[in-house]
């Protein structure tokens, strides 16, 4: 029997090889892929996220855990698609134009992905026309924007305005985040939601899609 408790632990400790190996075993034994994700993988990211917030671990541990999680997820995702399990929602995420900070945005992306959303990660330094084009060309429910610099935070407003101009603002919910972003800023620029961390981002997206 695949040791799924160990899968949980190996994601927390950032052990990619062990995570992948146990996931393979579990899938070979026909364990329900959704159960693997919901019961073992997401709780692992919750644990490491909490440790990060309490400064018990730092960016390296966080990135290792995210990588182990992604390694497992990459094996599971095709199975979900095969079974015709629809994603819980479709998200595009990116760090806005002029901003190269990658880490927090990627964390939010992997948490959302692990929670069953389809996530298209557009990377860093993403111009607003690229976001508009993505929204126009495929079905997207959520546009998630990250900015770490006070000088690039105004670009989030730019994206919202570009979506309005293109007439697609109502097709999507826009969520924003980054260490200097606040609920007040979110309201000011007319975004639909803000969360201060990756776990919160998952709850936020669920709430927005339910409403």
């Amino acid at each position: 029997m695949a040791d799924l408790k160990k899968l949980n632990e190996s994601i927390i400790s950032g052990d990619l090889d062990t995570s992948v190996q146990i996931t393979k075993e579990a899938l070979a034994e026909k364990t329900d892929p959704q159960e693997i994700i919901q019961k073992y993988m997401i709780p692992a990211m919750d644990v490491i996220g909490g440790k990060f917030e309490r400064n018990e671990v730092f960016v390296p541990e966080l990135l290792m855990a995210a990588r182990a999680m992604k390694g497992s997820l990459d094996l599971i995702r095709p199975l979900l698609a095969e079974r015709g399990i629809e994603p819980q929602g479709r998200v595009i995420i990116g760090t806005v134009k002029g901003d190269l900070h990658d880490i927090g945005k990627n964390l939010v992306a992997s948490m959302l992905e692990g929670s069953g959303f389809e996530v298209d990660n557009l990377g860093v330094d993403v111009p607003s026309d690229k976001i508009v084009a993505a929204v126009q060309s495929k079905k997207i429910d959520i546009v998630a924007l990250s900015a770490l610099l006070t000088t690039t935070m105004p670009s989030m407003k730019g994206v919202i305005e570009a979506l309005k101009e293109a007439g697609v603002r109502d097709k999507v919910k826009v969520i924003v985040g980054g260490p200097a972003v606040t609920q007040e800023f979110c309201d000011q620029i007319g975004a639909d939601g803000y969360s201060e961390n990756a776990n919160g981002a998952v709850d936020l997206v669920r709430k927005l899609l339910a409403s």
Binding site: E53, R54, N55, V57, F58, V59, P60, E61
Partner: peptide, 12 residues
């Protein structure tokens, strides 16, 4: 400054 009060870089 960390939650514990000492100083570290984001990499710890």
């Amino acid at each position: 400054k960390t939650v514990g009060g000492d100083y570290k870089t984001v990499m710890g």
